[in-house]
């Protein structure tokens, strides 16, 4: 005799495990007083150059470290090693994004209380990383001037999951007839109120404002952590 099928309620988030680890990481970052910042973008938008510049500029005044995600090569870590800060490569194999467990494993053996900033460079991909919380305090989405002004409209989900948009390679803007007003309009359409920075890792344009922004966020998150301790 076969019985009628019945419905059993589950109500569980599929990424529950990732979210639990991400929450634990966020708590750890807060307790250690480190500001965790992640970078997401399409391949080739200048994440590594931007990170290299960031590490070089910050490391004389702050304690900085970085995790860099890549599918197959360790080139980025080698390149970033030149900035003389601790850098660890996360090789994801065929996985197209970082998840919270990868970040947690990569931090193994690192004393976070010895850091002011931790940067996490995601795999170049504007789709998959949007589903995974890494426990970061801030997520920057990068968009280079050579990519086309409608990118925010094509990838609204990742822009929606990010806190700050960074327009990179501003030195090439004139050559590619970059329409800045259109990009700003498109960013605001998918994420009203989003903070936007415009930089060139090559000429240094916008880097002072960017550093000021990071420093402001770092001190306000410290003040918040101190108040809650």
């Amino acid at each position: 005799m076969t019985t009628e099928p019945r419905l059993v309620e589950v109500r569980k988030n599929v990424l529950k495990q990732n979210d639990i680890i991400a929450r634990a990481l966020r708590d750890r970052f807060r307790e250690a007083g480190v500001l965790a910042v992640s970078f997401v973008s399409s391949p080739g938008s200048g994440k590594t150059a931007f990170l290299e510049k960031t590490l070089t500029l910050l490391h004389s005044r702050y304690r900085v470290a970085a995790l860099v995600g890549d599918l197959a090569t360790e080139n980025d870590a080698a390149r970033l090693g030149r900035s003389q800060v601790p850098v660890k490569q996360i090789l994801t194999g065929t996985v197209c994004h970082l998840d919270a467990a990868m970040v947690q494993n990569a931090l193994d053996g690192w004393d976070l209380t010895q850091l002011d900033f931790l940067f996490i460079e995601n795999v170049g991909n504007l789709v998959c990383p949007s589903s995974y919380d890494l426990g970061e305090d801030l997520r920057f989405v990068l968009l280079s001037v050579t990519e086309g002004e409608d990118k925010p409209l094509k990838y609204p989900t990742i822009f929606n999951s990010a806190d700050v948009a960074v327009i990179t390679k501003s030195d090439l803007a004139a050559a590619v007839e970059f329409d800045e007003a259109a990009v700003l309009r498109n960013i605001q359409a998918v994420r009203p109120g989003m903070e936007v920075l415009k930089i060139s890792a090559k000429t240094g344009e916008g880097l002072a404002e960017y550093l000021e922004y990071l420093e402001r966020r770092c001190s306000s998150s410290r003040a918040g952590a101190a108040a809650s301790n």
């Binding site: 359409a189 998918v190 994420r191």
Partner: peptide, 30 residues
């Protein structure tokens, strides 16, 4: 999702209440 504003009054808003779900709600079992 290309235009985050109120469909009635046009006010831009980034505050998402629903739409990020990825949730197993139930199983049909025998």
């Amino acid at each position: 999702i290309q235009w985050f504003c109120c469909p009635e009054c046009g006010t831009p808003t980034p505050e998402v209440l629903h739409g990020k779900e990825l949730e197993v709600v139930a199983l049909e079992i025998e």
